Simulated assay, not measured.
Amino acid sequence: MVSAVSFRKTDLEEFLQNYFYKGFQSCIPLQGDAGLRSYYRIKESDDRSYILMDCPPTYCSIDPFIEIAHYLRSQNFSSPEIFHFDSKKGFIILEDFGDVSVKNVIQNSPHDLHLRKNTYSSMLDVLILLQQNIPTFSLKIYDNNLLLNELKLFTEWYILYRLKRNLSIIELDDFKDIWQRILNHQLSFNNCLVLRDYHVENIMYLESYKGIKSLGLLDFQDAIIGSPIYDVISVLEDARIKVPRAFALDCLKYFAAEKKLELPDVLVDYHILGAQRNLRILGVFARKYIRDKNGNYLRYIPLVLEYLNYDLSHPIMLKLKNWFSKIIN
């Protein structure tokens, strides 16, 4: 019997032959993301390189990635050019942005505070410009129902990982009721493009460009219409690199001033959406461990919990903080 894996390997080889009809020198696997997509760097004999994205259609469609990539390029942001794709089978050949991410830039100069400040200001500047326009094509709205639904990742996977049991009906109902009340306190409108995975490992440093063009955007296929604060949280509460609280607050002040928003309003949404996002991430990391037998993401949990503890410090979050303290001993 021929396996589905064999079929996909044959499809991939045919896809590559259609584009690289003269052949290529190498195809090297790269580190993937928390999903089921795979990435490879393909080099031709003249050392030109490309990125191959392999996204099984049973996992998700590549069409949103393609559509958003074209939109970002049309708005003068640096997103990878798409050279060849097969929507039906889930393959894309992309522009190669290299190996240097914003995370690498920051970690390679840990004591250069000026560099760190400028780098984070640039990431926020991208968001400020990005939020000036909304795509004309249809995207989901990050409404309260979707935010609540995402919290199932926490209640179904992180609780099981942490407590080795499921929540009782009463515990779960309390959690949902608390969150429904919290989400009603949001002050910002769902009125801008949210990339959702906007963090230092998904932003590449493009040395040959200046200004916002020097930041290469990746992993935006889950983009949605939502709060202008959400992607700011992705930057300032990054599970993969610790952002000091005082520095994060300075960044928030900068963002609020540039957006002409009141800082207390920004902080309300920051704490609400920050807590929601971090609970979701805890669930994602726990699911990777339990379901996918991948423990690589467990090392990020302590920092996510540290961010969550800050998010729960706002008075609006008091009932959730009490629930969390009672359940997660």
Score class of each variant (00 low, 15 high):
Asn18Leu: 13
Gln131Gly: 11
Leu273Asp: 00
Tyr297Leu: 03
Asn296Val: 13
His70Ala: 13
Leu124Arg: 02
Trp323Ser: 04
Tyr307Leu: 00
Asn278Ser: 06
Leu193Ile: 07
Lys164Asn: 14
Ile212Met: 08
Leu312Lys: 03
Gln31Thr: 15
Tyr209Glu: 10
Lys213Glu: 09
Ile159Pro: 01
Lys103His: 11
Leu151Ser: 06
Tyr209Leu: 10
His70Gln: 12
Val243Gly: 04
Glu44Pro: 11
Asn278Lys: 03
Asp112Lys: 03
Leu183Glu: 06
Ser214Pro: 12
Trp157Ala: 11
Tyr307Asp: 00
Asp238Ser: 01
Ile316Phe: 08
Tyr300Cys: 02
Ser26Cys: 11
Leu217Ser: 09
Pro57Thr: 11
Ile178Lys: 03
Arg277Ile: 00
Ala4Leu: 13
Tyr205Val: 05
Gly283His: 02
Arg73Asn: 15
Thr155Asp: 08
Tyr300Trp: 05
Ile82Trp: 05
Arg41Phe: 05
Glu13Cys: 08
Asp96Gly: 03
Pro80Asn: 09
Lys117Gly: 04
Leu282Arg: 09
Gln276Val: 10
Leu305Ala: 08
Pro228Asp: 00
Leu217Ile: 15
Pro135Asp: 04
Phe91Leu: 06
Leu127Phe: 01
Lys9Asp: 08
His314Ile: 15
Ser3Arg: 09
Gly283Val: 03
Leu148Phe: 05
Asp112Phe: 02
Asp143Gly: 03
Ser74Asp: 05
Met317Glu: 02
Ile241Cys: 05
Asp99Lys: 10
Asp86Asn: 14
His111Ile: 10
Val2Ala: 07
Lys88Pro: 11
Leu172Phe: 10
Pro302Thr: 00
Gln186His: 04
Met53Gln: 04
Tyr39Thr: 07
Glu13Thr: 15
Ile272Tyr: 03
Gly98Gln: 07
Glu171Phe: 02
Glu67Ile: 13
Glu171Leu: 07
Asp197Thr: 11
Leu303Ala: 04
Asn166Gly: 06
Leu267Cys: 12
Leu217Glu: 07
Arg245Ser: 14
Phe7Leu: 11
Tyr209His: 14
Asp222Cys: 04
Asp250Ile: 10
Leu193Asp: 00
Thr136Ile: 15
Phe85His: 12
Leu206Ser: 01
Tyr50Glu: 01
Phe83Leu: 14
Glu14Gln: 15
Asn322Ser: 15
Gly283Glu: 03
Ala246Gln: 12
Asp174Cys: 12
Glu306Gly: 00
Leu153Met: 12
Ala256Met: 07
Arg287Phe: 09
Ile212Gly: 12
Val5Leu: 12
Phe324Cys: 10
Ser79Arg: 04
Ile203Met: 05
Lys176Val: 15
Asn149Arg: 14
Val194Lys: 03
Ala246Thr: 13
Leu279Ile: 06
Leu218Ile: 14
Ile93Ser: 02
Ile170Thr: 15
Asp33Cys: 03
Asp173Gly: 09
Asp265Met: 14
His114Thr: 15
Pro57Lys: 01
Met123Ser: 08
Ser214Gly: 07
Phe137Val: 08
Ala239Asp: 01
Val200Ile: 15
Asp173Val: 01
Ile224Met: 07
Trp323His: 11
Leu72Gly: 01
Phe189Gln: 15
Phe77Ile: 06
Ile233Met: 01
Ile327Tyr: 01
Asn296Met: 09
Ser61Gly: 08
Ile281Ala: 00
His84Met: 08
Ile225Val: 15
Gly274Ala: 09
Leu72Trp: 01
Ile28Phe: 06
Lys259Glu: 12
Tyr39Glu: 04
Asp231Phe: 00
Ala256Gly: 04
Arg240Gly: 01
Tyr120Leu: 09
Arg162Ala: 14
Arg240Ser: 00
Leu308Pro: 00
Lys326Asn: 15
